[in-house]
Structures are given as structure tokens and as C-alpha cells.
């Protein structure tokens, strides 16, 4: 059966805080609560990477969070989309060039939608999620890798090995 049609009707989100100030996190929470209510798009917040389709990332990615972020990304099944919420997730924001941050989510994993604002408004977050749904519909089952990773994906895909390879390169950088 063609699941593609239904996929966008009930996406589940996973939210990870990689060193944000909580400002954007509470706005994401506000989105889930009555006034903005993203549940009308069938969206549920489940803290489980294996069941999620959309990864909402806030924060500029601290040095310690980057490995977790990569692991979470690999645990999510394809197709998946990544939404960077807030100025500091997009580019580092005020935290840009501080000694412990990576200047944005796209330095670690591929990002599909950027939501600007400090803090990002709930309306903007909803808009970002709706855009993400369109992208989700188009995406296929191929495994996605971060742009800096040189590993080749060829079937049969061994995710554990891929993750190891990526982690090695991640730590090897600089």
C-alpha cells in the first residue's frame, strides 16, 4: 500500500534542546497547548526517536550535545525532516563564536526548515512545521547523511556501522 499519502496526516515530533535558553522550548510547548494547538494537524509530541518523523531542534548545539544530536538523528527512521527553531539553532544567534558552541544545527545534521526569531513565535513555528510536512511528503526512504560525512550508503544498510563512522569523523574534525 502507498503510505505516502497518509504520512503527512499524523506526524509525530521529537524535540531536543541542544543548549538553547529555553525560550524557544517554551514556545514549542505553547504550540502544543490549547491556544495554538498543533494537534489539529495530527501532530503529537512523543519523546521517542524511533517513532518520530519531525525533529525540532533548539539551541546552538553545544560541544557535548552534538554527539547526542547525531545519535538521535540516526535513530529516527526515514523519511524524516529536521526543523531548526530559533535564531540560535539557525546560525548560533547571540551565542555565535562562544567557545563551547557549534554555531547552528546545520553544522552537525542536515536541516530542512529554518524558523527564525529570538524567541521564535508560535505562529512561525507552526508555519515551519507545516512546511516540514510538505517536505516530508516528498521524501523517500533513502538514508540521509550529514554533508561532512564521507561514508557511502549502499545496500544492505547497516545503520550502526554508519553511525560509528559518522561519530568517528565528528570527533576527528579539528
Amino acid at each position: 500500500m502507498d503510505f505516502k499519502k497518509f504520512r503527512k496526516r499524523s506526524p509525530w515530533i521529537l524535540h531536543y534542546n541542544t543548549g538553547s535558553c529555553n525560550g524557544c522550548d517554551i514556545e514549542i510547548l505553547a504550540c502544543l497547548a490549547p491556544k495554538y494547538d498543533v494537534e489539529r494537524f495530527g501532530i503529537l509530541n512523543r519523546g521517542n526517536p524511533k517513532q518520530s518523523d519531525i525533529l525540532l531542534v533548539t539551541g546552538p548545539v553545544t560541544k557535548r550535545a552534538k554527539e547526542r544530536l547525531l545519535r538521535l538523528y540516526f535513530e529516527m527512521p526515514e523519511p524524516k525532516v529536521v526543523v531548526a527553531v530559533g535564531a540560535c539553532a539557525c546560525s548560533g544567534g547571540v551565542f555565535r563564536h562562544m567557545y563551547n558552541v557549534e554555531n547552528g544545527v546545520d553544522k552537525v545534521i542536515p536541516v530542512d526548515v529554518y524558523v527564525p526569531g529570538c524567541a521564535a513565535r508560535p505562529e512561525a513555528i507552526i508555519d515551519g512545521i507545516v512546511r516540514a510536512l510538505e517536505i516530508l511528503k516528498e521524501k523517500g526512504k533513502e538514508v540521509e547523511l550529514p554533508h561532512w560525512c564521507s561514508a557511502q550508503v549502499k545496500p544492505p544498510v547497516n545503520r550502526v556501522k554508519l553511525l560509528d563512522r559518522c561519530l568517528e569523523e565528528l570527533h576527528g574534525r579539528r
Binding site: P60, T62, A65, R68, F95, Y99, N100
Partner: peptide, 11 residues
């Protein structure tokens, strides 16, 4: 507790 240390005091 150190997952989100960014280094604000230093900056």
C-alpha cells in the same frame, strides 16, 4: 548538568 554549557560568563 553540563549538557547545555555555552560559555556565557566568559563571553
Amino acid at each position: 548538568v553540563g549538557y547545555v554549557h555555552r560559555g556565557i560568563e566568559k563571553a
